[in-house]
Structure formats: C-alpha cells, structure tokens
Design a protein around this nucleic acid. Sequence first.
DNA 1: CCTCTATTGATAATGGTTCTCATTATCAAT
DNA 2: ATTGATAATGAGAACCATTATCAATAGAGG
Lengths: 155, 155
Amino acid sequence: MGRCRGNAWWQGRFRGCGYRVTAGREIILDALTKTDKHLSAEDIYLSVKKSCPGIGLATVYRTLEILVEMGLVLKFDFGDGRARYELAEGPNKEANHHHHLICAGCKRVIDYTDFIEDEVELLRKTEKGLSEKYNFDIKSHVIQFYGLCEKCKTK
Amino acid sequence: MGRCRGNAWWQGRFRGCGYRVTAGREIILDALTKTDKHLSAEDIYLSVKKSCPGIGLATVYRTLEILVEMGLVLKFDFGDGRARYELAEGPNKEANHHHHLICAGCKRVIDYTDFIEDEVELLRKTEKGLSEKYNFDIKSHVIQFYGLCEKCKTK
DNA sequence: CCTCTATTGATAATGGTTCTCATTATCAAT
DNA sequence: ATTGATAATGAGAACCATTATCAATAGAGG
Ligand SMILES: [Mn+2]
Ligand SMILES: [Mn+2]
Ligand SMILES: [Zn+2]
Ligand SMILES: [Zn+2]
C-alpha cells in the first residue's frame, strides 16, 4: 500500500466513487471546509496556491466538477459572471442547508437559515405536488432572494 | 413629428425611461412576446434576423440588458452556460409570475403556476421575516427545482 | 519496486458576452 | 419638412470564465 494520506471523513466516499485521493483534491476541499464564503474557482486557486504553489487552475476546475457531481459541494450562480462554490456537507456542517439573500448593490451574499423550517414544510408540499402533476423527480432546489442590503438600501 | 412607430403598451414606458423607440428594440420585444420559450440571446438574434436581416448580435444583448433593467424581461441561468430571457409582463401576460422545473437530463424547462398560491403565502411571510431580521429590501426571488423529467427519469 | 493509468500543470482553444468606433437613426426644436 | 444633438447600431475585436489537449507525473494494487 502506498503512503497513507490520512482518513478524513470524505476520503472513503471519494475512493468509493473510484477517484484517487490526491494532495490537490485534499487541499481544495480543505479550502472550502475552512471558509463560510462563496468562493469562485479563482478564489480557491489563489488560496490553495499559498500552500501548494505548483497547483494549476485546471485542477481546481476539475476537482470542483467532481465535488459537485458527488454532492459534496454546491455550485451557484449569483449573477456576477462566475460560478461560486460552497461546501454542501462535512464534518462540522451536517445540516448546512440554507438559502441566499443577494444584494444587487454590493453583490454581498447572505446565508440564512432562520425561516428554513416553514420553507422546508412548504417545499415538501410543493415538491410532492409538482412530482405528481408533472411526473418530475425533484433532486434539489435553488431559492434566492434579490434586493438591497442594509448598507445599499440607503444610497 | 416623425413617422409614428405605433403605440404598443411598452413604448410609453420605454420613452419615459429616456430610451428611444427603435425598430430593433420593437422586434426584439416582439420575439419575446410571441413565444413561451426561454430564449437565449442567440435564439433571439436568429429569430429576429429573419424579418430584420441587418440586425447585430450586440444590439440584441444591449436591448436585453435594458429590458431586464426596466423589469420588462427576466434573465435566468438554468445552468447551460448561457443566459435565458423571458417576458416578465405584457399585454397578455399581466400576471405571468411563475417558477421553474429544470430537467438535468434533457435541460427542458417547465413553467409552473399550480402551487403558487401556497408558495406566495410562504414567500410573503419569509420575505417579511428576512426583511426585518437582515434589514434587507427584497425586490425579487428565484425559485427553481432541479431533477429529472418524465422522459428522463426512466433512463 | 513495478505497472497501469488516473491525474496533473501548462497552455491553447472555446464560446458567451462586452467593448470600440465609425456610421446611422431618433426626435425635439426649428 | 429640416436640422442638429446625440442615442443607437453593426461589424468585429476584445474579454474572460471555463474546457480541452497532451506530455509528464503520481496514486494504488500487486
Ligand atoms: Mn451559502
Ligand atoms: Mn419561465
Ligand atoms: Zn449591498
Ligand atoms: Zn428531461
């Protein structure tokens, strides 16, 4: 057996999907785990480059693609022309599901979970109704509110 | 007074915003009015080119930008790498608001309004709560369900 | 170690969108 | 109807996030 790279929670899942565990993939997932921001591919690239200077931007994109496909990471479009990524689940983020408030002024993105309970209730009803009516198998949803944040609404 | 170009419902609003009424803008808005599809800029360009061969793609983009800014047209990202546009309101589409089901298999987009009543109720509550808690002025929302349509779920 | 091959980094290519600029069209004032 | 100020346009270049290419490298089972 080759040198062991550790036993982080995600590695089993990773190997189970037939993917190899590499230094690049480890550090990219680390970067996403260590922040609550909504990082772009380039954000991640620059962040990861500090402790892994040789990494290429293409590897970041390729890894993110895999992570999204596996459901470990969520990919969003907040309207600024680049994709944003966020850890979907993890060691400390088991029940991380939330929705977004997006400021049209400063482009800030606010995570909120405050009203999730009621929403989840309605979503369950809506998804059930839609599934039956359109015979559509719902896998995920995107709920985003656009407007002006505290600072931008006064200008 | 120059040749009158008609008195379509939108022209007053257009001039009121300081924009000139042009043949290109008229025909682009026509194209959006005459369909219930979710057209890309290039879709519109090709469609409009048939009755206005000289039009340029840049004009389509510029016009769409204005229409979105004015709130006459909605811009969506369904994850296929290009923006999609849809008439927000119009002569026959006063209460056109709806949400989307997006098939990850065939990329088909289904408009639905069936369960809007309950959703509208929850949205009102949620928006009120969020506005107060985050002092955020909500202007619009995007609600999309992703999954597999009738045809794609069996494969 | 050894082999097989998935992964990687550098870089070119792609493709949707935006920008530039000389020309044209709109429209309020004549 | 004509004019003049300037907004709008078309052609094409530029931009830039994302993908594809490919030779070199590294993961993992034996
Ligand atoms: Mn978030
Ligand atoms: Mn629609
Ligand atoms: Zn703001
Ligand atoms: Zn489908």
